[in-house]
Design a protein around this nucleic acid. Structure first.
Lengths: 205, 205
DNA sequence: GTAGACTTGTTACTAAAAGCACTAACAAAT
DNA sequence: ATTTGTTAGTGCTTTTAGTAACAAGTCTAC
C-alpha cells in the first residue's frame, strides 16, 4: 500500500514536525507555513515541504498549512492516531525515571509494565506500577500484545533481554544500555546513550 | 590545525568505535580488525577504515589495529584524554537519574553540579550533590570553567536556561527538554527526546 | 625462504540527501 | 477586476555519504 519507499531520514523528521505542530496548536495557532516551521525547528523550509509532499498535498498555496489538519495527517502517517503501550525492562535509575516520565502523555505513548530480575525490586511499587518478575516477561507481553519495549538494563544483560523481547513479539526497541545490540532486520531499534552524544561534542571544544 | 574538514557524521561514529574498543580492552583483547569492529557494531568494515584513515594510519596491514593504541588515538581526537566536568540544570526525575548515572564513569565525563529553581529542591541532597540555586548558575559555571551542560528542565524553561548557560560560557549542551532550542552556530547541541525516537519507529509497525 | 591468507589505506564509483529555482495557486488590498 | 505579495509543490543541480575493489604490506605455516 505504501507506493514508493520513504527514506528513514524523512520519517525521522516527521515526529519533529508533529511536536512543533502540537505546540503551535496548544498556543492557539490555527495556520502555519513551511517557513514558520523552518524557523521553529532550524530545518530549511524547502526540506519540510519536500518531506511533507512525499505523503500528499496537505497545504494550500498562498495560505500555508492548517495546524490541526496537518497534525492529524502526521498522526495517521506515524500511526500515532492511537496510544501505543510499552514495556520497560530494568527498574534501576533509568528505568524508574522512564516509568515516571510525564513526556509520553499526549504523545500517543504509554508505559504499561516494568520488569526487573532483582528479587529485591520485584513486587515493589514504582510510580503507578508494581515491578514484575522478568521471568514472566514473555507471557505478559504476549497477553497484552505489546509491540514496543524500552531496555534499561546493564550492558551485560542487554543482548539476552533483547532476544527474549523479540521472542515475546516485540517489534520496536528503544535501548538505553550503552552497548550495540544485534537485532534481525525486521525489528526497529533506536539507541540512547548520553555519553555518546556528549563525546560527539567534545571534539569541537 | 585541522587540515581538512571532517564531516560531523564521521565524528559521530568515533565514540561508537571507542566504546567498542573499551569493551574489547576490558575483555583482554589486544588486537582487532576493521572486520571485527564491523561485526560488533553493525557498520561496514570499509566505512570504519575510511573514517579512521581521515585522522591517520593507526593500523598495520595484515595485522589489524592494536586495541589500546587505537583507543588512545580516539581519545586524543575526541579530546576525551582528560575528564570533562558537566553541570545538570533541573533536578526533576530526569536530572536526578542523570546525577546518579554510573555510565559517565570511565568515559571521561563527570557531573560536577546540579541546579534547580524550586526552593523545595535547593539545598537538598541528590546523589553526591547538593542541589544549587539556579540564580547562582552563571557564577558557579564561570568559577569552575565548565563547558558542558545538560538541560533537564520543563520545555517552557528550556530556552531561557539555554541562554543563561551560554552567557556563563557553556559551549556544548545536551538537551532533554522535548522542544527545539535555538543556539548560536558556535555552540554544540545534541537533543534526547525518547518520544521522538519511539514515534520514529511506530511508522514501521 | 616462500606461498598463501589477511588486512589496511586509498581510490573510483554509486547512491542518497540537501539546496536551489521555478511555476502555479491563492489571498488581500486597491 | 487587477495587482501584489505569499506560499506550496516539483524538477534539477550540487553536495555529501557510502560501497566496492585493489595495491601494498604483514604474518603464519611449512
Amino acid at each position: 500500500m505504501q507506493q514508493k519507499i520513504i527514506p528513514d531520514i524523512v520519517i525521522g523528521r516527521l515526529p519533529l514536525y508533529y511536536r512543533a505542530l502540537q505546540r503551535m496548536s496548544s498556543k492557539g495557532h490555527t495556520v502555519t507555513s513551511s517557513q514558520e516551521l523552518a524557523d521553529t525547528l532550524g530545518i530549511s523550509a524547502a526540506q519540510i515541504r519536500k518531506d511533507l509532499s512525499q505523503f500528499g498535498e496537505f497545504g494550500k498555496q498562498g495560505t500555508g498549512y492548517n495546524v490541526e489538519y496537518l497534525a492529524d495527517q502526521l498522526k495517521k502517517i506515524l500511526k500515532i492516531d492511537h496510544v501505543w503501550d510499552m514495556v520497560i525492562v530494568g527498574a534501576g535509575d533509568v528505568g524508574s525515571a522512564l516509568a515516571r516520565y510525564q513526556g509520553f502523555q499526549d504523545r500517543s505513548l504509554r508505559v504499561k509494565m516494568i520488569f526487573d530480575s532483582d528479587p529485591l525490586k520485584i513486587g515493589k511499587e514504582l510510580g503507578n506500577f508494581i515491578v514484575k518478575d522478568i521471568s514472566t516477561l514473555i507471557d505478559e507481553i504476549k497477553k497484552e500484545g505489546i509491540k514496543i519495549a524500552i531496555i534499561a538494563v546493564p550492558e551485560n544483560e542487554a543482548q539476552e533481554v533483547t532476544d527474549t523481547l523479540i521472542k515475546a513479539g516485540i517489534k520496536a526497541i528503544l535501548n538505553y544500555a550503552p552497548i550495540h545490540i544485534a537485532v534481525p532486520p525486521e525489528i526497529r531499534l533506536q539507541c540512547i546513550d548520553p555519553a555518546l552524544h556528549l563525546q560527539r561534542m567534545t571534539y569541537y571544544l
